Simulated assay, not measured.
Amino acid sequence: MIRIETAAVSDAPEITRLFEALITEITDRTESQQPLFSLSGTEEKCASFIESGIYAVLLARDEASGETIGFLSLCESHSLYASGAFGIIQECYVQSDYRSRGVGARLLSAAQHYGQTLGWKRLEVATPPLPVFHRSVSFYEQHGFERTGGSKLKSIIP
């Protein structure tokens, strides 16, 4: 049985372990020549974000083993196009042995419930690079997400 729960500050080490697995998988599967993300200080940042309330994390735990097997992180944003507050899924990861077993769907459902309690009308998510992660896009589409076009871009502020 899988249990979904809201993370506490004390869960930062487990979230960091899963986050590092996510980044490693993206780096390996995209054959990236440079690190996608500096993992330095991740646990401290995670704990600080949770403690401040700017970052919510939902955890999937295997009740039989007690192991944390997945997570989904959320933050709130605001925009005119969304008519106010909405949620952004920042990271979502399920250990490979638990994929295609409904864990991700349960995390998404919990994220939608969390958003409803805050009055959000929508959730947004960006996926890792295509076509390597086409299954991720299909997963989100199967759970009611729609493609909105465009590409995710970033600019580092020095």
Rank of each mutant, 00 (worst) to 15 (best):
F139R: 03
G104D: 07
R61E: 04
P35L: 03
I157R: 11
T16D: 12
E67F: 00
I2S: 05
Q95F: 07
I69R: 01
L153T: 11
R106S: 14
T30F: 01
I54L: 06
P131N: 06
P129F: 05
L74I: 03
T117K: 13
V103W: 05
E25M: 09
P158Q: 13
T127K: 02
S96V: 14
E124L: 06
Q33T: 13
Y114N: 08
Y93R: 09
S77M: 15
E63R: 04
V132Q: 12
A126R: 08
C46Y: 01
R122W: 07
I69S: 01
H134R: 10
D28Y: 03
A47W: 00
R122Q: 15
R61P: 00
S136I: 07
V132S: 04
D28V: 07
T16Y: 03
R29G: 04
F71L: 06
M1L: 07
S32C: 12
A82G: 13
R147D: 13
L107D: 08
C46H: 01
P131F: 03
S52G: 02
I88T: 13
G87V: 08
T16K: 07
G84N: 05
R122F: 11
V125E: 04
C46M: 15
T127S: 13
E146M: 12
G66T: 00
Y140L: 09
P131Y: 04
T117S: 14
Q116R: 13
F86V: 07
E5Y: 09
Y55D: 00
I157P: 07
V137E: 15
Y81H: 11
Q90M: 15
A47I: 00
R122V: 09
S151K: 13
H113W: 10
I89S: 11
S40L: 10
E5N: 09
L36I: 10
I50T: 00
H134M: 09
F133K: 03
L74V: 01
I2L: 09
G66I: 00
S83K: 12
T27I: 05
F133D: 04
R122P: 01
A105V: 10
R61L: 02
F37Q: 09
W120P: 03
E31Q: 12
R122C: 13
G87N: 08
S52C: 01
S32T: 12
D97M: 10
R99D: 08
G70S: 01
L72R: 00
S100M: 09
I2V: 15
G149T: 10
G150M: 15
P158C: 10
E25L: 13
L123M: 06
T42M: 09
I2C: 04
V137G: 05
T16H: 04
P13F: 02
G144Q: 11
R106G: 08
L36Y: 05
L130S: 05
R3N: 14
G102R: 05
T127W: 02
T16N: 11
K45Q: 12
G115S: 02
A47C: 00
G149P: 12
T68Y: 03
F19Q: 09
S40A: 14
C75F: 15
F49Q: 08
E146C: 14
E51T: 02
G87W: 07
T24M: 06
L36S: 03
A126I: 08
T16E: 09
E25V: 09
L18I: 04
V9Y: 11
R61N: 01
K154W: 15
D62Q: 02
L118F: 14
R29C: 05
G87F: 11
